[in-house]
Design a protein around this nucleic acid. Structure first.
Length: 802
RNA sequence: GCAGGAGUGGCGGAAUGGCAGACGCAUCAGACUCAAAAUCUGACGUAGGUGACUAUGUGUGGGUUCAAGUCCCAUCUCCUGCACCA
């Protein structure tokens, strides 16, 4: 009889052996086929590892271990995305340097990850807060700056009142700070920006060349928000100035009955003196300025606005004079900040026109009465009341109108994107210093690359200042410097980079993590890039994933990296929720600590459970009973050693099952269907127990298949049954397609699609024989006229009778 | 509102258009035990029948098909993301 499975002993034993043997160190031999598997590196928070972390890590660990068994040189690295607000806030509260906080947290995380038996190559560990690392983050920033893609500008930014820091649009969720939940207001500040908009088109087109799960590609496309339309100039009666609008429906130009400008539109101030109701306009403008973007869209249903008296616009297509309104439903930040309103065919314009009693002219026929209901369908309508466009479809009319506009010089085709430039400044201490100085004579000047890394200086206090400046601004010794360009006095930039900076290129550093001459060597990049499979959270789709694609594409354009897209394949995992189906949180009291599970049931049980919990890409709620079930399964695998025979081959009655299982587990691992892969292995051991025997050959195959999921117990069993070498060094099992097919099968016999009996047949029995046998079995039920006989090989016979 | 996804036993969840509910959990019964736990064996959608069985069943209503959880049309609910983007 075997001893009881002692997970603590077994797991510590093998973790030590793997370390000593450098079992999972990546080979530098570039002649082997490579595989780069990537998981998102964690932010080492003070709370330690969350039970959600092991889900993606185990999944990619399984893929990595399988790839190694298949003969690939695998890069499966891990590191720390360690700059960020929580660490800084903790440092402020406890008067500890963030460097030390980070170090402690990293140690804790590393220990926890180690206890889970991941096959990370720890020789390639990276940390974004290491000056040797952020030297290259700063270097990339300087390249962007030199190409004019980093610029500083005065602009209203999203300002978190609690964190006292500017946020990117992507970091504002429902009008509050994504991180702390406090109110976000608008504040005008001078900010560093990255021109991601310049890459909008490339980022969309790149999506066609990679294998991302559908919803990720769709979200990115929607976020970039490409729309094709036209810009049209409307003249202002009696003025030189034109009022330019952007429209995607230039076909409806004949139906434009008024115009609307955004409250921030410069035309208002310019013609202030001629606007006869200026007081009313100004008051409206002030009210609008007070509302946050969130409030503006919250109140979306109710349109407000003021007509501008004293100014009139002229519709260039029919020379008709039309009124101009100011309304906050038009945004200054998209298009031109002014629109032509076609109330008959635009929902917002229709609402506004109804409220202000403006004329609604139908120019696309096909809907109901436009006085009663807006008609926005572009697929079926036909142009009317539109001069030379009459009778055309919407698509034809758009084309013809653009030709006309361009010919007359009053407009042109124009593509717009919703994507905005990336706000790249943070008024915080714990981030990468921006390597720029400001000189009164020369403006913003890059520091020489030879001076990188520009290290974070030690400061007295990390408290952000109330003026909104970074704590670095109080360090006069550091701030005052000389201009690298003219040698005169200059000041250093005191803003730091956002947390997204370090994670925008980290995968490149893994390929050559200790290089001091370049972010990575050409050879390493050529060999390892692109990442073959990157799994991460859905929440990073429009932030990290888009930002890193942007940086990578930029580096490709500069000849730094060898491929335009960083990730060949991207998948995402679902969240692990508390047992009540809610997100795990301290306040809800439903948090599960992975350490407890590892201690009580073992790392292999935790890994197996997290893979078995449900479909990988859907969220799943934690059930303690399910953990026990997985432990039971591993115990049963353990005890198979007691009924093992010494035969190396598969037993005759289980040969088919073995080949089927190898096939299923292998393909399920590739397709993120870990739950059904484990189910198949459970079903297999149920077969062994049913006949109370397992051959050594069968056992070895099972252990190999299970090894990527539960590496410790399988490695131990491999040794117990007397096998030479290590299990992790074995080859992945092969199967023969022909042997996955049963020699006899039970098929269903149906009448009119309803099952009436079952029948055992040989796999090669001819169709006629099978049908004849089937009819015998259900002879007493064949009362009508047979109209059709259907035979689906290996499945069923269906007799259709009337 | 738009986009993506989901709706299947008491629960988590399986099902290239081909025997719905694999696998696991819980529950019940039996074995082992003085007893319990653990372990092993078996039952386990619903309704009816002593029974082999019969009927019914994948959110709802239609349709296509020899055959629909799966495909098509409509509809309801839930989740996720985006949202006055002209």
């Amino acid at each position: 009889m075997s001893e009881i499975y002692n997970h603590r002993e077994v797991e510590t034993k093998w973790q030590k052996i793997w370390d000593d043997e450098q079992a999972f160190a990546t080979s530098e031999d570039y002649s082997k086929p490579k595989y780069f598997a990537l998981v998102e590196f964690p932010y080492p928070s003070g709370q330690g590892l969350h039970v959600g972390h092991p889900r993606p890590y185990t999944a990619m660990d399984i893929v990595s271990r399988k790839r190694r068994m298949q003969g690939y040189n695998v890069l499966f690295p891990m590191g720390w995305d360690a700059f960020g607000l929580p660490t800084e806030n903790y440092a402020i509260k406890n008067q500890i340097h963030p460097k030390i906080v980070t170090k402690n947290n990293v140690n804790r995380f590393k220990e926890q990850l180690h206890s889970l038996g991941y096959s990370f190559d720890w020789n390639r560990e990276i940390n974004t807060t290491d000056p040797e690392y952020y030297k290259w983050t700063q270097w990339i920033f300087l390249q962007l700056f030199k190409k004019g893609l980093a610029y500083k500008t005065e602009m209203p930014i999203n300002w978190c009142t609690s964190c006292k820091v500017g946020l990117a649009n992507e970091e504002v969720v429902n009008g509050v700070c994504e991180r702390c939940g406090s109110e976000v207001v608008r504040k005008v500040k001078s900010q560093w920006m990255l021109k991601i908009t310049e890459y909008a088109e490339k980022l969309i087109q790149g999506l066609d060349t990679v294998d991302y799960v559908e919803k990720i590609a769709v979200s990115q496309k929607n976020w970039i928000g490409k729309s094709m339309g036209a810009e049209v100039d409307f003249s202002i009666s009696g003025k030189e100035d034109k009022l330019r609008v952007y429209t995607t429906r230039c076909d409806t130009l004949f139906g434009a009955t008024y115009m609307v400008v955004s409250p921030e539109h410069p035309i208002l101030d310019k013609y202030k003196d001629e606007i006869t109701n200026w007081a009313a306009v100004e008051e409206y403008r002030e009210q609008a300025a007070k509302k946050s973007d969130f409030e503006r869209s919250e109140l979306a249903k109710d349109k407000t606005g003021v007509v501008i008296e004293g100014l009139k616009a002229v519709n260039p297509i029919n020379e008709k004079e039309i009124p101009i309104f100011v309304s906050d439903y038009v945004l200054m930040s998209y298009g031109t900040g002014a629109i032509m309103a076609v109330p008959a065919h635009d929902e917002r314009d229709w609402d506004f026109a109804k409220k202000f009693n403006l004329p609604i002219i139908e120019v696309v026929a096909g809907g109901k009465d436009v006085q009663e209901e807006v008609y926005t369908d572009v697929a079926t309508g036909t142009l009317v009341n539109s001069g030379f466009l009459n009778g055309l479809s919407v698509e034809e009319a758009k084309k013809k109108m653009i030709e006309y506009l361009e010919e007359k010089g009053i407009g042109h085709a124009k593509t717009n994107y919703k994507l905005r430039d990336w706000v790249f400044s943070r008024q915080r201490y714990w981030g990468e210093p921006i390597p720029i100085v400001k000189c009164d004579k020369c403006g913003y000047v890059a520091i020489p690359e030879s001076e990188l890394p520009l290290e974070l200086p030690e400061v007295e206090s990390y408290m952000p200042t109330d003026t909104g400046e970074s704590p670095l601004s109080t360090m006069t010794d550091w701030v005052n410097t000389t201009c690298p360009c003219c040698g005169g006095p200059a000041k250093r930039e005191t803003d730091t980079m956002p947390q997204w900076a370090g994670s925008s290129w980290y995968f490149l550093r893994y390929t050559d993590p200790h290089n001091s001459e370049a972010l990575a060597s050409k050879e390493a990049l050529e060999y390892w890039m692109p990442v073959d499979w990157y799994n991460g959270g859905m929440e990073h789709t429009t932030l990290h994933l888009l930002y890193s694609r942007f940086w990578h594409r930029f580096l490709y354009d500069q000849g730094v990296v060898p491929c335009p897209e960083p990730y060949k394949k991207r998948t995402s995992h679902g969240m692990i929720l508390g047992s009540n189906g809610e997100k795990m949180s301290k306040s809800r009291g439903n948090v599960v600590n992975p350490d407890d599970i590892v201690r009580e049931y073992g790392a292999d049980t935790l890994r197996t459970y997290e893979m078995f919990i449900g479909a990988f890409d859907l969220s799943a709620s934690w059930q303690d009973e399910g953990v026990k079930g997985c432990r039971r399964f591993l115990d049963r695998v353990w005890k198979l050693q007691d009924i093992m025979t010494e035969e190396e081959s598969y037993s005759a009655d289980l040969e088919t099952k073995m080949h089927q299982t190898i096939k299923k587990v292998g393909s399920d691992f590739e397709n993120l269907k870990f739950n059904t892969a484990i189910a198949a292995m459970m079903a297999l051991i149920n077969e062994f127990y049913k006949k109370n025997a397992v051959t050594k050959g069968e056992y070895k195959t099972l252990l190999t298949l299970l090894n990527p999921v539960a590496p410790h117990i399988t490695e131990e069993l491999w040794q117990i049954i007397g096998e030479e070498g290590r299990l992790y060094q074995q080859s992945w099992p092969e199967y023969e397609e022909a042997k996955t097919i049963e020699s006899t099968v039970e098929i269903a016999v149906q009448i009119n699609g309803k099952v009436k009996a079952t029948l055992n047949i040989g796999k090669d029995d001819p169709k006629e024989d099978v049908i004849a046998k089937a009819k015998e079995v259900i002879a007493d039920k064949l009362t009508g006229t047979i109209v059709k006989e259907i035979y689906v090989p290996g499945r069923l016979v269906n007799i259709v009778q009337k």
